[in-house]
Design a protein around this nucleic acid. Structure first.
Lengths: 329, 329
DNA sequence: CTGAAAGCGCTTACAG
DNA sequence: CTGAAAGCGCTTACAG
């Protein structure tokens, strides 16, 4: 491996000049610049970023933590984030937690050891306590899941409005007894969507019944039990809203395999709008989230924080538009 | 941020001693060690890895490049790779190409600028020319897709055997005219599987007909056209093998929407064994690849290269077992 | 068992 | 417009 030193020697200039050429400093004479660039090319020189990063005290690297990659929902957010990182000149490390807390610590350590400059937590990948210890010291952005009052920027859809629209659609079709398969109960997105669900019901003159709402992990681990738990109460369910496409796909699967006593013709609306809602049979009516944009915008917000003072960085919630897409359920 | 210097001062030792404690050098006296550790804790000191990396000329970082993350196939490989990176003490940067060549160059540059020590290419994320320029200079591992004779380790299943088994299964059921929806034509996995397909046919006394084989992108972009291209030739297709679960799911979708003139009861076997083959209706018979292990083993092989001399590092192909899982198609 | 010193490969005030 | 020199925060022979 060649170094600035060798390039300098070969080009008959100082290392300072080589560095200036490398960094496009307009102060260097055109002819000098050309000579140096020629040598750089000739030696196939690439700067050692390990050195550059130390000297500049910046890694130009950010981290995004996701609960898992198996759900296409997260994959699409990650895709947007990668595009943004590239556009803004940052490296991005995308990590998945796989439900293991120590993995999260690993990624947080990238921040503490100067390997990364900022961090994005997607969905409920971080808990409130962790965030609280981080927000003051490092640039943090939350993606899809807000922790109000914590002082971090959050990028998400308007969950309350989305929950309202999903419920309204089922009501419009004449469904009256609508079950709600939620995700993790405490999360702001779940809370927001249920609020919208409630509002639509009340608007339609239907009493909100908390017994029709059941939690389930965000993935598909116990959807069938959650659904059957509600059905067992005998409320004559004729519509279902789920927190994710994946959950909805497992409800359809459960119905097909006679594990869930419902008709395939049930009114079913899910959240997310991944390709999963397209490939099931029947295909699923879904609230499409702008997943790619959510990832992209999260990175953009983080970069803004990185480039401004932490103090005057943008805060609050950035809301992106969602859309109800009607398919076969 | 505190530094070794400040820790040293506060603990009344030299920076060398602090560094030794940090690196668990057994040579330091127990009492000294304890004192230093106490100060470290007290100051909440974390070493600056930017400095450590430069000094040690090693980033402890590897890169894995995938064609895309939207296919759960790749997500699962990435999951295994992350687990392995953690187990072996490396950071891993997982990048997706999204069909854009310049993204690939970005990741390769991590290698050239010392930010990463080795690289894993999954599927056909790199072409032969690029690999040839890299293999001599950097530790490289290929995952799922081999480039024979290039001198890199490859981790994959036995594609020929898998293609053979898939075909045998359809033949066993009495299907005689089996279409093959392949991926990118040149790739070693496609070639291997088709070889197995051929072999099974010949064994059953059926002539291999290249007209029954059609290419399609690895994802679902033009599955319907590929399938209809074959059907249009009038060979009375009664069985289909696809290169991926995703392709198979789009064939089912095409059948359902009357875009593909086939019965849903067609014999259909795909490759991969992602959850997609489970959530479709009907669920898909599939050759399950050990995706998590493929990712895990690829990282393991790379780490072996990193720890040994490049010269005496393991080479050749590491074969992992696959399994035919029979579902509804 | 410990410390002083050199050095990893860059960048950047400072001086000219 | 260019160069000499300091320094980013570590690690590691070397000497004692």
């Amino acid at each position: 491996m060649s170094s600035v030193k060798e390039v300098a020697k070969r080009a008959n200039v100082s290392v300072a000049t080589v560095s200036r050429v490398l960094n496009n400093d307009p102060v260097v004479k055109q002819s000098t610049k050309e000579k140096v660039l020629e040598v750089i090319k000739e030696m196939n020189y690439k700067p050692n970023l390990l050195a550059k990063n130390l000297r500049k005290q910046a890694s130009k690297t950010i981290v995004m933590v996701l609960p898992a990659m198996s759900n296409p929902y997260f994959a699409e957010i990650a895709r947007g984030a990668q595009a943004a990182a590239y556009d803004f000149g940052y490296h991005i490390i995308i990590g998945t937690m796989e439900s293991k807390r120590w993995i999260l610590d690993t990624y947080v350590n990238l921040l503490k050891t100067n390997l990364a400059e900022g961090m994005i937590f997607v969905s409920s990948s971080a808990d409130r306590e962790l965030l609280q210890t981080l927000v003051g010291d490092y640039p943090i952005v939350l993606c899809t899941e807000n922790y109000p009052g914590i002082g971090a920027t959050c990028v998400s859809i308007d969950n309350k409005q989305a929950g309202y629209e999903a419920t309204r659609e089922l009501l419009r079709r004449g469904h009256r007894s609508i079950a709600y398969i939620a995700g993790n109960r405490q999360s702001s997105s779940v809370l927001g969507r249920i609020e919208g669900y409630k509002e639509a019901l009340i608007e339609a003159g239907i009493e909100y019944n908390p017994e029709l709402v059941a939690g389930s992990k965000n993935n598909f681990e116990n959807v069938t039990e959650a659904m059957n738990g509600i059905l067992g109460k005998g409320f004559g369910i004729d519509g279902v809203i789920t927190h994710s496409d994946l959950q909805a796909s497992y409800i359809l699967k459960g119905i097909k395999e006679n594990l869930i006593p419902l008709e395939a013709s049930i009114g079913l609306i899910s959240f997310d709008g991944t390709f999963i809602a397209e490939i099931t049979n029947p295909s699923i009516t879904t609230i499409v989230q702008p997943l790619y944009d959510l990832g992209y915008t999260s990175v953009h917000q983080l970069v803004l924080k990185l480039q401004n003072d932490l103090a005057e960085a943008p805060q609050g919630v950035v809301i992106l538009p969602h859309e109800l897409v009607i398919r076969e359920t």
